[in-house]
Design a protein around this nucleic acid. Structure first.
Lengths: 125, 125
DNA sequence: CTCTTTGTCAACCGCAAGGTTGAATAAGCG
DNA sequence: CGCTTATTCAACCTTGCGGTTGACAAAGAG
C-alpha cells in the first residue's frame, strides 16, 4: 500500500528542478522566495514543486509569520533505496547462481539446436 | 550532465507497472508476452513500458528469433542510490552539526522578538 | 506457401504535469 | 490605517504519458 508513496517519491525526484530543490534543502532549510531566486521560473511554479515534494513526504513546511520555511524530510529517501537495493540484490544473486547459467545454456540450446559458441546470450552479430 | 539520465531513471520507476516489470526482471529474463500476461493492459502498453525502461538504460532487449528477451541492467540503479545517499548524508551531517542547532534556536528566537534575523546560512556551498 | 506467433508502428484519446498570469490572503512595517 | 512582502488560489495553455485499437513486419511451424 506504500506503492503510491513510492510512486509519488520517484515521480517527485524525476524532475530536475525538484531534485535541485531537495539538494538545496539537504544543506539547509529555506523559504519559497529564497529558493525561487535560484531558478528562472515563477515563484508560483516553485511553490507547486514544493507542494509535490510535500505530497511525497519529502518536505515539511512549517509556519513562521508570513513565510513558510521548508525542511527536508530525509527519511523518506530510505524507502526508495530500500526498494532499489532489493532489486539490485536479487539481480546480483541471480547473476551468481550456477543454475542460472545452466538454464541459460539449456534455453539457448532449445532455441537453436546447434553447437553454439557460448559467451552470453546477449550480443547478436 | 547525466541529469537527464537521472530524470529518465526516476521517471521510469515512478510507474507501478514499470516497477513491477523491473522486479520481475530482477528475478529472471522474460519476453514481452510472458511479461504482458501478468497485467491487464494490452501487449502494446507493456511494450511501451519496456521501451521507457530501455530508454532509461534499465533494460536491454536482445534478439532471439521472433521474440525479444528482456534483461535487467541493474547497474543503472546505482546512479540513483548514489544521488539519494548523497542527500541523505548531507542532511544527516547538517542535523548533527552544533551550529545548526544554535541557528535553529536563534531563528526561533527571531520569530518571537528579534533585532537581527540574519542567522540562516545562505547558499555558500 | 500459408498460417500463427511475437512484437512494433501509427493514430488517436483523456488526463495530469509543468508552466504562465492575475488576483487574493496573511502578516510585518511605517 | 495603508503599503510591502510572502505565499497561495484560480484559470488557462501546451505537452507528454499511459492507455486503446488497428494494421503491419518478421520469423517459426504445418
Amino acid at each position: 500500500m506504500d506503492e503510491q508513496q513510492l510512486s509519488r517519491t520517484f515521480a517527485a525526484l524525476a524532475d530536475p528542478t525538484r531534485r535541485d530543490l531537495v539538494a538545496r534543502l539537504a544543506v539547509g532549510d529555506a523559504t519559497l522566495t529564497e529558493l525561487a531566486s535560484s531558478y528562472d521560473v515563477s515563484v508560483q511554479a516553485v511553490s507547486k514543486h514544493l507542494k509535490v515534494l510535500e505530497g511525497a513526504g519529502l518536505v515539511r513546511r512549517t509556519k513562521d509569520a508570513q513565510r513558510r520555511p521548508c525542511h527536508l524530510e530525509a527519511e523518506v529517501l530510505d524507502l526508495m533505496t530500500g526498494w532499489i537495493e532489493r532489486r539490485r540484490r536479487e539481480a546480483e544473486e541471480r547473476y551468481q547462481r550456477l543454475d542460472d547459467v545452466l538454464a541459460r545454456m539449456a534455453a539457448d540450446e532449445a532455441a537453436d539446436s546447434d553447437p553454439a559458441p557460448r559467451t552470453r546470450e546477449g550480443e547478436a552479430s
